[in-house]
Amino acid sequence: MIQGISIYHFLIVSSLMFFIGIAGFIIRQNLITILLSIELILNSVAINFLVFNRYLYPDQLQGHFFSLFIIGVAAAEASVAIALIINIYRRIHGINTDDVNEMKH
């Protein structure tokens, strides 16, 4: 609970951040920047969890742990994604999403 700042402030920020992430996911060409957008999305969700935890149920820690686990999952996801990206780069010498459509058939 911060003096003068309500839960709505936080939620507005985090939802804006979420949609910026989505927009980035859709418009970016490079696989790595898509990964960055995903990080943005994950982060906004983590903020949400924490804010709910702090403002609504401050005597418990569920939201806190969820954020912790989100960070863990993000780390795992980033490592696998980067491994995939590097592998794709080796094969087609580029990581633009428009080039990676061989699975469509």
């Binding site: 490079n30 790595i32 990964l35 960055l36 990080e39 982060n43 960070i71 993000a74 780390a75 980033a78 490592s79 980067i82 990206i85 590097i86 780069y89 990581i95």
Partner: peptide, 19 residues
Amino acid sequence: TLYAGGIVVLIIFSILLTS
């Protein structure tokens, strides 16, 4: 430490590797 220190560094490395 984890996000800023770990993941972003990882991503920067991969950027340097691929472009």
